[in-house]
Computed example of a mutant assay.
Amino acid sequence: MALPQIVQHGRRVARPNAAKAAFTATVKPIAVGRIVRLQVLRGSSWRTVDTVRQDADGRIDFGARASKNDQALRYRVVAGRFRSLPAVKSRPVSTARWLKPTWTDQFGGRSLSPAWSHRGQTYQPASLRRCSKGSAKAVRVGGGAVRLRVMRDPSRATKCPALKNGQIAGRYAYRLNGHIGTDQSFSFRYGFAAARIKFPRLRGQHGSFWMQPIGGMYPGGTGHEIDVTEFFGGTHKRSGLFSYIHRYEAGHIVKTGANISDRFLHGPGDGWGKSFHVFSVQWTPRRLIFRIDGRETWRVGGRISRVPQYLILSLLSSDYELPEIEDRQLPQHMAVDWVRVWETGR
């Protein structure tokens, strides 16, 4: 299966058109260690562009260029002979349907495009943010990226009593958060949404790329919150990276999610706060499939959102997180290189 250009790990900002297309295949029967090749059609012959070994799930993921001279390319997967198993090959697939995204923002220039609006610009105790609020002051565009910040609120000289588990956990400076969305300009239903992000390393805030339904969530509604990625900072016990969905079931909001392993990093020198990674979700009427740099991290089925969703980028400091970081460590930054949507309609 050919997927959009959602493979682009690296330390610096980059053009979204330079990202690699993702390819995923499943070879059965599963034979761990079997050599599998991705081949591209050149003229009348097939040439190998990548080679991997089959994993225990039987799935193989590749990244390769989506086009040449602005023309789509055709690929196939070939699994070599392995013990008693004969060589097999897939049918060819084309990258053509993914060459033109429905919507994109590369964050050029020095200001946000009109597609984005600022969210949550009041202190919201009900949302566990009595000490922080969204503000345009916490959003900066430059160098080919938008930088969302957690910073001190210069208009507040007093300290805020931050609550954790219903108790005052300390008093901290009031904070401004970068929190932007496309709710007033763009939404889509079914397809791929992807963002290339570098998170802040420290705990004490969480950076997110997420979507909410037009019209909001309510009992009996068919719209759900889709958290493509949320990073709460590194810990010594486990990765602080998650994907979630929130949906109503029997009149109550049910939260389903997965903690994403650090095995999706690119080696021991990589990190969610060291490099940009492309976080994406494939949304169909039957399931959501989450990926990082084209590699599947989690999938969920059942009652999937049926209404158009809009995009949100945020770096939020909830009250319960404030004890994890000192005021002197502010500001913190989350960088987003680009955001893209490929709408499929089904």
Rank of each mutant, 00 (worst) to 15 (best):
M217L: 10
Y218L: 11
P219E: 08
G220K: 08
G220W: 04
G220C: 05
G221S: 04
T222I: 05
T222V: 09
G223F: 03
G223H: 08
G223M: 03
H224E: 15
H224R: 13
E225M: 08
I226K: 02
I226H: 01
I226P: 01
I226L: 14
I226Q: 02
D227Q: 10
V228H: 02
T229S: 12
E230G: 02
E230H: 01
E230S: 06
E230L: 03
F231C: 05
F231V: 06
G233M: 07
G234F: 12
G234Q: 13
G234W: 10
G234V: 08
T235I: 06
T235Y: 12
H236W: 08
H236S: 15
K237E: 00
K237D: 01
K237C: 01
S239F: 00
S239C: 01
G240N: 03
G240S: 05
G240R: 00
G240H: 01
G240A: 03
L241N: 01
S243R: 11
S243Q: 14
Y244W: 15
Y244A: 02
Y244K: 12
H246V: 12
H246L: 11
H246M: 08
H246W: 09
Y248P: 11
E249A: 13
E249L: 12
E249V: 15
E249W: 12
E249D: 11
E249M: 09
A250S: 14
G251F: 12
G251M: 10
G251Q: 10
K255G: 07
K255C: 07
K255V: 15
T256R: 14
G257T: 11
A258R: 14
A258F: 15
A258V: 12
A258N: 14
N259D: 08
I260P: 01
S261L: 04
S261T: 08
D262E: 13
R263Q: 13
F264D: 01
F264I: 02
H266Q: 13
H266W: 11
G267A: 07
G267H: 09
G269Y: 07
G269P: 06
G269C: 06
D270L: 00
G271E: 03
G271W: 03
G271R: 03
W272G: 01
G273E: 00
G273K: 00
G273R: 01
G273V: 01
K274C: 02
S275R: 11
S275P: 03
F276E: 02
H277E: 06
H277N: 10
V278L: 09
